[in-house]
């Protein structure tokens, strides 16, 4: 009987280890925000992609929640489109401030704050650790402040200047009908 037990245990361990090593898409699985994976949209001259995954450690914690008090890390990935502001297509947009407000179906605010600029292995982005304990149909509204608000300058002379100008008032965009379900990370 002891041999049988040992065999069962060894088989289970081998099974799990083999399966773990066989994982080809393991790591930090990202989930899209928005109905039917419609998580991307254009704002001003850039694309915004909203995703979330497991809460992460950040240094410093900043205005975000520490990992053990949050249940997801939400981020807005920005990439420049064709523009007359000197940004290479596909590049990140630094110096912005992005405020977020998440509401439930009743219109109650369930989380709000600002996304902070940060870098991860997949590059720079704006994001935050947040705590959303309940599943529900949510809306996420982002308010994009121009880099100019944080002192980002543009060359405007004839020889080196860019022809475009930043937007002067913050612009908002809302992702409606996010069917949010808390995940186990």
């Amino acid at each position: 009987m002891k041999k049988f037990l040992a065999l069962v245990m060894a088989a289970m361990m081998a099974l799990s280890c083999a399966a773990a090593l066989a994982e080809d898409e393991a790591g930090f699985p990202e989930y899209d925000i928005g109905p039917e994976m419609d998580n991307e949209r254009q704002v001003e001259f850039f694309n915004v992609s909203m995703v979330y995954f497991q809460p992460v450690d950040m240094e410093p914690v900043g205005d975000s929640l520490p990992r053990d008090q949050a249940n997801l890390h939400i981020e807005a990935d920005l990439s420049a489109l064709e523009n007359d502001l000197g940004y290479e297509v596909g590049s990140w947009i630094p110096y912005m401030q992005i405020d977020y407000v998440i509401k439930n179906e009743n219109g109650d605010v369930v989380a709000e704050g600002k996304f902070m600029p940060m870098a991860a292995t997949d590059g720079p982005h704006y994001g935050a650790n947040i705590y959303l304990p309940d599943a529900g149909l949510l809306s996420v509204t982002l308010t994009f402040h121009s880099p100019a608000e944080n002192g980002y300058l543009l060359h405007v002379d004839e020889q080196t200047g860019v022809t475009g100008r930043f937007w002067t008032e913050p612009v908002t965009s809302t992702w409606e009908n996010w069917e949010y379900v808390p995940q186990t990370w």
């Binding site: 069962v8 245990m9 361990m13 773990a20 994982e23």
Partner: peptide, 29 residues
């Protein structure tokens, strides 16, 4: 034996999860 195996495997899982990116918890669950 299932209890013992479950505890041992859970400890292995916890260790692998904590130290590597090999385990996507939702997928495994």
């Amino acid at each position: 034996g299932g209890v013992v195996a479950g505890n041992v495997l859970s400890a292995v899982f916890a260790a692998v999860k904590s130290t590597t990116n090999l385990i996507d918890t939702n997928r495994w669950n």
